[in-house]
């Protein structure tokens, strides 16, 4: 679906992503993990064309994205930033309409097809009861569902989300993740998301990619990748890992901050 080859991203002279290659497989849920500042958002932003990359190629369904127009990209790929803003007076339905823009020529007005897709997106995200409410009056979890509905209205093949559960309470975190899993199952939507909660990543992803200082340090199934050693190396945290059925399967519990062996040797 999406493939990056030797992606290199710099802010001014500060090289954030030296050389990043990976591939997103159709129909999977892929989580990108890594500490703050490791370059997760930067990679998403580069793929979304929000920022330019200096070197490397990004392919979307086999075509070089540099040669695709923004609208062509927006019909296949939707990227939700970590924080989104809605004008104060826009209702849920008003806002979701903007997901239709990539499908419209500059002179085309809203038509029946758009209304159909908007209602479908509202149904898919369980927003029927809220559709005429103003977005700014909704709770964080509800708002996140509205942005996901807007993304669905684009009818994309791939949905990327930057920290979709940050700022939400645990109930709404799970609600959003369940919704994404559900969309992935029912619609075959490929999902790439940045997460901070390793337990969530383990439970909801088919595959995880771990970043450290802009480079990939692990890539694979969560149970294989998320080992005590990796968590210690990347996050400097000692974790308790269990595969306990009463805890819902694979489970990661951060215990305490530790030093890596290298740092310990320096000290």
């Amino acid at each position: 679906m999406i493939k990056t080859k030797n992606l290199n991203v710099k802010y001014e002279k500060h090289e954030v992503i030296p050389d990043f290659s990976f591939e997103v497989v159709q129909g999977e849920i892929l989580s990108i993990l890594g500490p703050n500042g490791s370059g997760k958002s930067t990679i998403l932003n580069a793929i979304a064309k929000f920022i330019a990359h200096q070197d490397g190629v990004i392919y979307l369904e086999g075509s070089d994205m540099a040669k695709m127009g923004v609208k062509a990209v927006a019909k296949r790929l939707s990227v939700l930033a970590q924080v989104n803003q809605s004008p104060e007076d826009f209702t849920v339905r008003d806002l979701i309409y903007y997901g239709r823009l990539p499908h419209k020529k500059w002179y085309e007005q809203k038509n029946e097809k758009d209304d159909c897709v908007i209602e479908w997106a509202i149904g898919q995200t369980n927003l029927s009861a809220l559709a005429d409410k103003r977005v700014v009056t909704l709770s964080g979890g509800e708002r996140q569902r509205v942005w996901i509905a807007l993304a669905l209205a684009q009818e994309p093949k791939v949905l990327m989300l930057d920290e979709p559960t940050t700022y939400l309470d645990i109930c709404h975190q799970i609600e959003v993740l369940e919704l994404l899993k559900d969309l992935n199952k029912r619609l075959g939507l490929t999902i790439v998301m940045v997460l901070h909660d390793l337990a969530h990543a383990a439970r909801y992803s088919d595959r995880v990619v771990v970043l450290q200082n802009g480079s990939m340090v692990a890539d694979g199934r969560p149970e294989e990748v998320l080992t005590k050693e990796l968590i210690r190396e990347v996050y400097h945290v000692d974790a308790y890992i269990a595969t306990d059925e009463c805890l819902g399967g694979f489970c990661i519990l951060p215990v305490k901050i530790c030093k890596t062996q290298k740092e310990a040797a320096h000290a």
Partner: peptide, 14 residues
């Protein structure tokens, strides 16, 4: 579209 912020505008192909 610009009212939705730069990233959202770009995301919907503007």
């Amino acid at each position: 579209a610009l009212q939705l912020g730069d990233k959202m505008a770009a995301n919907v192909g503007v």
